[in-house]
Amino acid sequence: MSPSRASRRRPARTAAVLAGAAAVALSLSACSSGSSPTSSQGSNYVDGTGEITLVKAVDRKPAPDISGKTVSGGQTSLAAYKGKVVVVNMWGSWCDPCRHEAPHLAEVSAADAAKGVQFLGINTRDLTLSNAAAFEKSFGITYPNLFDPYGKLILKFPKGSVNPQSLPSTLVIDRQGRIAARALKPLSTQELNELIDPIVAEQ
């Protein structure tokens, strides 16, 4: 490749990266406690309290196919946990509410493993793996976390659906791979259990 061609491609790649970062910044209210509670008017969503939304089983939509490299260097996907209830948490090491929530996620993920519940994190807007890895170690996070610095995986959740809209956000995926619940706030241990247990109890 000639130097002139390389120089022309470099700006294009840079523009693509910046565009991805801008898109995720618009789709997520960074490190907020969440947006306004979802209204049930004109929808089939059953609102919980605060920033928690539950979706009736008959109205749930499939979660998108997300997969990629993990913070620890492996590979994983949402599809790998088919048949389990999956708790998907979006976080960043730089996000104070995410740090507040992390010990609760670690606790519940360990306690619920015997129930067939799998936790899966999506780390976003950490441009280096080292910060994300340090977060995992600091809070005893042992479940896999997809490394998604520019939010490409998060953007696979369609806008206007029960999609993540803030950091932290947590989604619960039912055994059929459908989005069953969403929380746009940091969750306590009790709130996590209240969100997960009814979905685990479904037959």
Rank of each mutant, 00 (worst) to 15 (best):
Leu120Trp: 03
Ala134Gln: 08
Thr170His: 00
Ala23Arg: 12
Ser109Glu: 06
Ala134Met: 09
Leu155Ser: 12
Gly140Asp: 04
Met90His: 13
Ser169Met: 00
Ser109Cys: 04
Arg60Phe: 07
Val88Leu: 13
Lys84Phe: 01
Ala63Leu: 07
Ala23Ser: 11
Leu192Gln: 01
Ala102Gly: 04
Gly73Met: 00
Glu202Leu: 13
Arg99Ser: 02
Val88Thr: 02
Ala201Gly: 03
Leu167Glu: 04
Ile52Tyr: 07
Thr189Arg: 14
Thr38Lys: 09
Ala106Gln: 09
Asn145Gly: 04
Asn145Ser: 15
Ala57Ile: 08
Phe157Ala: 05
Ser40Asn: 10
Ala15Trp: 10
Ala134Trp: 00
Pro97Val: 02
Ser77Ala: 15
Ile196Phe: 01
Val46Glu: 15
Ala15Gly: 07
Lys69His: 09
Lys61Glu: 15
Pro158Gln: 06
Ala183Asn: 02
Val87Tyr: 01
Asn131Lys: 13
Glu101Pro: 00
Arg60Cys: 00
Glu191Ala: 11
Ser27Trp: 00
Leu155Ile: 07
Ser109Thr: 01
Gln190Leu: 09
Lys82Asp: 05
Arg9Ala: 14
Gly151Phe: 05
Ala201Val: 06
Val200Thr: 07
Gly121Pro: 04
Thr38Val: 13
Ala12Tyr: 10
Gln203Lys: 10
Gly34Leu: 10
Tyr150His: 12
Ser4Trp: 09
Gln41Pro: 00
Ser166Ala: 15
Lys185Val: 13
Leu167Ile: 10
Ala102Trp: 01
Ala114Asp: 09
Asp112Leu: 12
Glu51Tyr: 12
Asn131Gly: 13
Ala23Trp: 03
Ser93Ile: 07
Arg10Trp: 10
Leu18Asn: 11
Asn89Ser: 07
Ala25Tyr: 06
Ala181Thr: 05
Asp148Trp: 01
Ile199Gly: 00
Ile173Val: 13
Ala180Asn: 10
Ala22Gln: 13
Ser35Phe: 02
Val46Cys: 11
Ala80Leu: 01
Ala110Arg: 14
Leu153Asp: 03
Ser35Ile: 12
Ile122Phe: 00
Ile52Trp: 10
His104Ala: 15
Ser138Phe: 06
Leu167Gly: 08
Ser7Val: 14
Asn193Ile: 08
Ser138Thr: 14
Phe135Leu: 02
Ser35Gln: 09
Tyr81Ile: 12
Pro149Arg: 08
Arg5Pro: 00
Val24Glu: 00
Leu54Trp: 11
Val172Phe: 05
Thr189His: 07
Ala12Lys: 09
Ala22Arg: 11
Ala16Glu: 12
Ser36Cys: 10
Lys152Asp: 15
Ser2Ala: 10
Tyr143Met: 05
Leu192His: 02
Pro164Lys: 08
Thr142His: 15
Phe157Arg: 06
Phe157Asp: 03
Asn44Arg: 14
Pro64Arg: 02
Ser39Ala: 14
Ala16Thr: 14
Leu78Val: 05
Ala15Ser: 07
Asp96Val: 11
